[in-house]
Amino acid sequence: MNSKTILLVEDNPDDELLTLDALKANHVGNAVIVARNGVEALDYMFGTGKFSGRDVTDQPAVVLLDLKLPKIDGLEVLHLIRADERTKFQPVVILTSSNEDEDRIRGYKLGANSYVRKPVDFDEFLKAAGQLGLYWLLLNQPPPHY
C-alpha cells in the first residue's frame, strides 16, 4: 500500500475502533486520521482550526464519511468539500448505518463516490473494509494535483 492517508469521519468510538480493527485485519497500513465531527473533518480538509498549517495539497486517498455527526452532519460536510475548488474531486465514500432511500439519494446528489452501509455482521464488515482499502488505496487512481 502507498503512503496515502485515510480520513475517517466517525463520532462513535466503537465504530471507530471496529473500522480501525477491520482495516488492520485487512493489512491496510496507511495512516488513518480520525475526525469525530463535521467541523474537524472540514478543518482537516482545508487546513483550518485544529489542523491549521497542514499541507492541504496532501489530501487523503479517500474520506470515509459517516452521515450522522455532531455539529455539522455528513451530508453538509460532503456539500462543502464539493463546493470548494481545492477539494471538489476528493474521493468520498459514505459509510453509514442508514439505509434510508432519502439518505442515499441525497448522498449521490451531493456527489458521493460510493455509499456503503456498515453491516452489523463483523465478518461482512471485515470484507467491506478490505474491499474499500483495496479499491481506494490501490486500484483507484486519484485525480492529479490541480
Binding site: T96, V120, F122, L126
Partner: peptide, 20 residues
C-alpha cells in the same frame, strides 16, 4: 431514522468485538 442508525451501532459493536 434513529432506530435504523443508532440501534444498529451498538449491535455492530457487540458483534464486532465478539468477533475480535
Amino acid at each position: 431514522y434513529s432506530v435504523s442508525h443508532d440501534l444498529r451501532a451498538p449491535l455492530r459493536a457487540m458483534d464486532g468485538f465478539s468477533s475480535t
